[in-house]
Nucleic acid binder design. Structure first.
Lengths: 111, 111
DNA sequence: CTACTATATTCCCATCGGGTAGTATGCTAC
DNA sequence: GTAGCATACTACCCGATGGGAATATAGTAG
């Protein structure tokens, strides 16, 4: 597993990757892409976000390699570049789930 | 897997978790904790960061449940609360590795 | 060519977040 | 009690970032 040594420089690159996922708007876009390839317009409609906003975030996602894209006439089709992204989200989601359960247990005991 | 529906509210919570990992200083602290429980002073020495800085980031990590802690006299001992954090880092690290390889292949071809 | 459309980019503003210095808290030793 | 230490908290500066309006680019239709 650990072929890479976790030097500060490497950690900075990893942090950059996490930072890209640390924005709800971008996560919404990634979720929307779960359904398959989509154009920018479709993503705008699916999320209700502004055009400039969506376009900008898509550049960020693509810049970090989370998406692939192809141009077809006026349209740009975006898709998830691999499934690791979803795996990351699911892992994080699992953490959330457990924490919520733990919190509910605490609340249940107190009341 | 997907017991939770990915509503915008949920995605916001997930984004918050990722945001915490999206900072190189915090990743350095998590890495330092890989070696086991440590006091704040030890983390300061291990990383070379300022005291206030380390303390603040530890609050953030603890607030998101990435660490547990116990007080012992003057000292506060921090430790990783589970191994999922490391799994997340390894997954992200795997992405990095593949991207670097892909980039090297491209550079190799061009020259 | 002009008009229209989809996407990208630029600019501006408000907010957020990291780093640091200084201060506060709280424990220990004496 | 005082002195000293480990840690936490506050205040401040400053650079980064998200959002939106306006503008630019580039492809299409006629």
């Amino acid at each position: 597993m650990g072929k890479i040594r976790m030097t500060p420089a490497v950690l900075e690159q990893i942090a950059d990757r996490f930072k890209v996922l640390g924005d709800p708007t971008r996560l919404r876009l990634l979720q929307a892409l779960r359904g398959g390839e989509a154009t920018v317009s479709e993503l705008i409609e699916a999320t209700g976000l502004g055009q400039a906003n969506v376009s900008k975030h898509l550049q960020v996602l693509h810049g970090s390699g989370y998406t692939s894209r192809r141009k077809e006439g006026l349209f740009t089709w975006y898709r998830l570049s691999d499934v690791d992204v979803l795996q990351l989200c699911d892992l994080m989601c699992g953490r959330l789930e457990r924490d919520h359960l733990a919190q509910q247990r605490l609340l249940g005991r107190e009341r």
